[in-house]
Design a protein around this nucleic acid. Structure first.
Length: 577
DNA sequence: GCCGTTTTCGGCCCGACTGTTTTCAGTCG
């Protein structure tokens, strides 16, 4: 039983209890537990096996800890099954529709006998829904609209797809209106790997004019709501975007509020409530005097709460609030810390540009070194390098290094890990390289035991330095390979290997919670773009976002170090060159 | 159901919008 399964069951528990009209705080407890479990950096099953006390987790007490143990041990949860059986079927599906909450779902199921979205659609068309007490034509029509748009859009979209769209919207609005402080909040600002909808906000002399320009953008397909200070639209690619304009004086608290996460904000408010402060998007109210204080910046907002500024990427209620109050937050890695890239391709394999172009682009990105790691021969499709061409490339790199100024090329390879864990280049040739990046590209459907053994064997090779895109996932397209990451991390620690944070927006691999775990184990990570063309160096921001979400400081990031230290690290450990 | 430099019992985040009524329940973020 995986954490995501356990989280799903707790979420359903919350829904069922809500339908039953149970104590709202009990419901919230289950919902919080679901959140906590879903974002845990380690599997509950592993924690239990090593005898850890689940009650130490935030929001997990006696009762829920026992339920998690039951789920892991038996694969079942009696309380959940009893609850599920006591309710009409199909309620969970109805709850997925925006506008339908527990009360409405229950009434639709009991009063109309509806047990699926299709049946609901029929009932609406037959006018049955509008005839229910306290529902009407408008409500029924809205629900129909929601069902249709639910079928059209595929939920959350990858960050890498959303970010360029958002940037285009924002730059156009700035040009058109001269609005100030325009930016995106929400999960996008927190650099979550997928984005549900987009929250934009800003301040302006004339907010209504900005709203008018917003809904008139060519990118906008449909306007859902339009008022004087707020509008919601559907963009051409199906993404929903909300724009809110506020007075400049309250921008800090508004930004804080809409950046979230929800869990972070709830934890923050609960904590401040005990100190007699009420937090909202408009500012901070002293409950005794009923006086509202406004804040133009988030720094001032957190400052008033007696806290350090908390970077958006770690606002997830995972201990950041306590640390901020103690002035003890980690200094997260940032763009300016990055000194080089340890995984890029050129037109020697499947890249688009020659060595020199990539070198110049890396220099322009502010780097002082760049590892050239084209594919090895085993990957026929990528035009990989055999030993002969690899040695030729190494000579070309040496020649180029004599000409280049301000950037040093390292000679490397992205070597393929074969199905049995061997590499498709000899140890002899690997020993001549500065950097060996190893990765899995074939036989991706092996079972967990086999895949784990395969990767561990590769990590035992003394020439391997970095494990690239460790799970092989492609967001929304390909599931991660079945692998025991905890075992891989232990193996990497034993052999002093480095794990990659791949910046390609459809990979983002390792993902945030795995980065968190790897860092916790003291492993070193490399933030690598896997660039296949010069423009790809810009993708570094995605990897930095993930690293920050994993609470990484520069000390955890290999390529924040100068080239001599990088080489010294790679040649140390159990490497033998 | 969780939690505790005020508490092991009595609290538990905050506000807006919508559609339906005629004062507010339900839902959402």
């Amino acid at each position: 039983m995986k954490n995501t399964d356990i989280a799903g069951i707790f979420e359903q528990m919350a829904n069922f209890l809500e339908i039953k009209g149970e104590n709202p705080f009990k419901i919230r407890a289950y919902r919080r537990a679901a959140q906590v479990v879903e974002h845990l950096p380690r599997e509950i099953a592993v924690m239990l096996a090593s005898g850890e006390d689940l009650k130490a987790l935030p929001g997990i007490g006696q009762a829920i800890a026992a339920k998690m143990e039951e789920l892991v041990r038996t694969g079942h949860l009696a309380a959940w099954e009893t609850l599920k059986n006591s309710l009409p079927e199909g309620l969970s599906d109805l709850l997925e529709i925006p506008g339908i909450g527990p009360k409405t779902a229950y009434r639709l199921a009991t009063e109309l006998g509806i047990s699926s979205v299709d049946e609901l659609e029929q009932a609406i068309q037959q006018g049955k829904v509008a005839s229910l007490f306290r529902l009407g034509d408008r409500t029924a029509e809205n629900l129909l609209h929601q069902i249709q748009s639910l079928r059209r859009k595929d939920q959350r979209i990858p960050l890498g797809q959303a970010l360029p769209v958002v940037e285009e919207v924002l730059s156009r609005l700035r040009l058109l209106t001269g609005a100030k402080n325009l930016l995106a909040a929400g999960s996008l600002r927190r650099f979550r790997e997928t984005v549900g909808d987009i929250d934009l906000m800003g301040t302006a002399e004339n907010p209504e004019a900005v709203i008018r320009s917003f809904v008139a953008l060519p990118l906008v397909r449909e306007v859902l709501v339009q008022g004087p200070t707020k509008a919601s639209v559907i963009l051409a690619d199906g993404l929903q975007a909300d724009l809110r304009m506020v007075e400049h004086e309250a921008f800090g608290s508004l930004l804080q509020y809409f950046t979230g996460s929800r869990q972070h904000n709830i934890a923050l408010r609960t904590r401040m409530q005990k100190k007699g402060l009420k937090l909202s998007e408009y500012g901070i109210t002293d409950v005794d005097t009923d006086k509202l204080e406004k804040f133009t910046t988030e720094e001032a907002f957190y400052g008033r709460l007696g806290m350090q500024y908390i970077p958006p990427e770690i606002r997830e209620d995972r201990g950041e609030i306590d640390l901020a109050a103690k002035n003890a937050l980690p200094e997260l890695v940032q763009r300016s810390d990055i000194r080089g890239d340890l995984h890029v391709h050129t037109n020697w394999s499947d890249g688009a540009a020659p060595l020199e172009s990539m070198a110049q682009a890396a220099k322009a990105a502010g780097y002082s070194y760049l590892a050239i790691t084209d594919h090895s021969g085993g990957l026929g499709v990528a035009g990989g390098l055999n030993e002969e061409r690899l040695l030729k490339q190494q000579q070309a790199i040496r020649r180029l290094n004599k000409e280049l100024e301000g950037i040093r090329l390292l000679s490397g390879i992205e070597v393929n890990i074969l199905a049995d864990g061997r590499l498709d280049l000899s140890d002899e040739i690997l020993s001549r390289l500065d950097v060996v990046v190893a990765s899995v590209h074939s036989a991706l459907n092996q079972n967990e035991a086999k895949m784990t053994r395969r990767i561990l064997k590769a990590l035992e090779n003394p020439h391997v330095d970095i494990l690239a895109h460790p799970t092989g996932r492609l967001i929304g397209k390909r599931e991660p390979v079945a692998v025991d990451l905890e075992a891989v991390f232990q193996g990497a620690a034993a052999h002093r290997k480095v794990l990659e944070i791949n910046c390609m927006p459809d990979r983002l691999d390792l993902q945030d919670i795995s980065i968190y775990r790897a860092r916790e184990l003291g492993l070193l990570l490399a933030i690598s773009t896997d660039a296949h063309r010069p423009e790809h160096f810009d993708l570094i921001r995605f990897g930095i976002g993930m690293a920050r979400r994993g609470w990484c400081q520069p000390s955890s990031i290999l390529n924040s170090r100068p080239v001599e230290e990088v080489l010294a690290h790679l040649k140390g450990g159990d490497a033998v060159r």
